[in-house]
């Protein structure tokens, strides 16, 4: 198997894209789920504050989502920009 330098770089960039998106998705998934879980617990205690709690949950999840979006951007850069 002949691997040219450019092929080697391109191949590892694609592997890196997979690792970036894969590992990057773990944290936001767990964190957003934790936020959702605690919001459910809080609404269970105080159902009349459901609107406030849902809003707060979504704001917190949006912040926690940001690293997932960084991973997505980096993965797309590695796939389509690194040649």
């Amino acid at each position: 198997m002949e691997i040219t330098g450019a092929d080697f770089v391109r191949g590892l960039a694609l592997l890196g894209a997979g690792l970036a998106m894969g590992l990057g998705a773990i944290g936001p998934g767990v964190g957003e789920g934790y936020a959702a879980g605690k919001a459910c617990e809080a609404i269970g205690r105080k159902p009349e504050e459901a609107g406030l709690l849902t809003r707060t949950m979504l704001v917190g999840q949006a912040v926690s989502e940001s690293t997932g979006i960084y991973s997505l951007v980096v993965a797309l850069l590695l796939m389509f920009v690194v040649k």
Partner: peptide, 23 residues
């Protein structure tokens, strides 16, 4: 890379959605 992306990417949402359902 496709395997790594989907494999690792599946761990976090699975656990997180489970915590949400648990509570």
């Amino acid at each position: 890379g496709a395997g790594f992306a989907m494999g690792f990417g599946g761990i976090g949402p699975g656990i997180g959605e489970g915590i949400a359902a648990q509570n």
